[in-house]
Amino acid sequence: MSIQHFRVALIPFFAAFCLPVFAHPETLVKVKDAEDQLGARVGYIELDLNSGKILESFRPEERFPMMSTFKVLLCGAVLSRVDAGQEQLGRRIHYSQNDLVEYSPVTEKHLTDGMTVRELCSAAITMSDNTAANLLLTTIGGPKELTAFLHNMGDHVTRLDRWEPELNEAIPNDERDTTMPAAMATTLRKLLTGELLTLASRQQLIDWMEADKVAGPLLRSALPAGWFIADKSGAGERGSRGIIAALGPDGKPSRIVVIYTTGSQATMDERNRQIAEIGASLIKHW
């Protein structure tokens, strides 16, 4: 067993022997301040990774656009098919120029040779490549099948209805392509620590998230040296922004954090800054 596999296998073990965790309302004060600064709703939840206990939450059962955070769930569904012998990570998928959609920095470079399922998941999570996500959605049967996968996990809230990039439209009061912070946090925890996926697939999923290259201005910008984070960000229309993450000190994750916002007129930089400040408060009061 590799060191990384050992780390993920012992996530519940280490967490069980940690000192009790206590909620700190100071972080919620910052979440509410972010709402004021952005002029928009902000949803927040913080779960203990081992027990699933909610440590703090704000608007945990209000719907927010998922945006690209759905790509972690998508690759979880792909990995479940791999575990069941219905898919192979090494299978190569070929596609054409007509398949390319807006923001496809990886797939646009491989029109000639195609990409493997493993490479597509890596591109979808680490670079948020939209064509990679659409190609992977095709392998599982489309958005409705991802929703069905989530329902089978016990998540009857999260739903995907459309493809990239239309799913980022974020129309107010439109339930399409949305989740709730509580539902997303619980589902992410199941994917990373539950028995739904094999140990190898859980490790692969967290490795992809740990290698995320496009979430630097968010929670990662607030992390002290030595902290662990595996995350996936999302951005959408109407001032929408979000991030889902597993993080913790001492090089291992111990909490799940989900943050979503929508309806702001603020710039992307300002949305990023507010999420980073929430992260800084979380870490300060850990």
Rank of each mutant, 00 (worst) to 15 (best):
F64H: 01
T139C: 09
G194C: 11
R241N: 04
K53S: 13
A9Q: 08
F22E: 15
D177E: 02
S254D: 13
S96L: 13
K232R: 06
D231T: 04
A225R: 13
S264I: 04
R162V: 02
S233K: 01
V78G: 01
E169P: 05
L192Y: 07
G114L: 04
A246W: 06
N173W: 15
D48N: 07
F17K: 07
R241W: 02
L146S: 01
I278R: 00
T179D: 00
L100S: 04
L100N: 03
E164Y: 05
A211W: 08
I93S: 03
T131P: 03
A15W: 15
L135I: 14
K144N: 14
A132E: 00
I206G: 09
R63V: 08
F149C: 07
M66F: 09
T27G: 03
V117S: 03
G234Q: 01
T147G: 10
T193K: 15
A148I: 13
D48I: 04
I283M: 11
H156R: 13
P12T: 12
G279Q: 02
L79T: 02
V8W: 08
D129K: 00
L188K: 01
H5V: 08
P165H: 06
S122I: 13
I283H: 05
L167S: 06
E237R: 13
T147P: 03
A77F: 10
I125L: 12
D155N: 06
L146M: 13
E270I: 12
R238F: 14
V214T: 09
T27K: 04
A123P: 00
P20Q: 15
F17A: 10
A235G: 11
M127Y: 11
L146I: 08
G114C: 04
L167G: 05
F228G: 05
C18L: 06
D33H: 15
L247V: 11
D99Q: 13
E195A: 06
R41L: 09
F13W: 11
I275Q: 01
A183F: 08
S201D: 02
G242N: 03
K109P: 07
G279E: 02
I54L: 14
Y103T: 05
L136H: 01
V21P: 05
A15D: 02
L199F: 11
E61N: 13
F64D: 00
W163S: 10
Q97C: 08
R238G: 12
I283G: 04
L137A: 06
A235W: 01
E87T: 08
F58A: 09
K71E: 00
K213R: 13
G142R: 04
G52M: 06
V31M: 08
C75F: 06
T186P: 08
A16S: 15
M184C: 06
T27F: 04
N134T: 05
F149A: 08
L79I: 05
G226E: 10
E61L: 12
Y103H: 07
D113R: 11
E46V: 09
M1E: 01
D207L: 12
A124L: 04
R81F: 10
S57Q: 12
Y95M: 07
F149W: 14
M180E: 15
S264P: 03
D161T: 06
G43L: 00
P181F: 00
V257R: 00
R162E: 05
W227A: 03
L19Y: 15
R59A: 06
L10Q: 06
C75I: 07
P172E: 13
S96T: 13
N134F: 03
V31G: 02
L188A: 07
V31A: 08
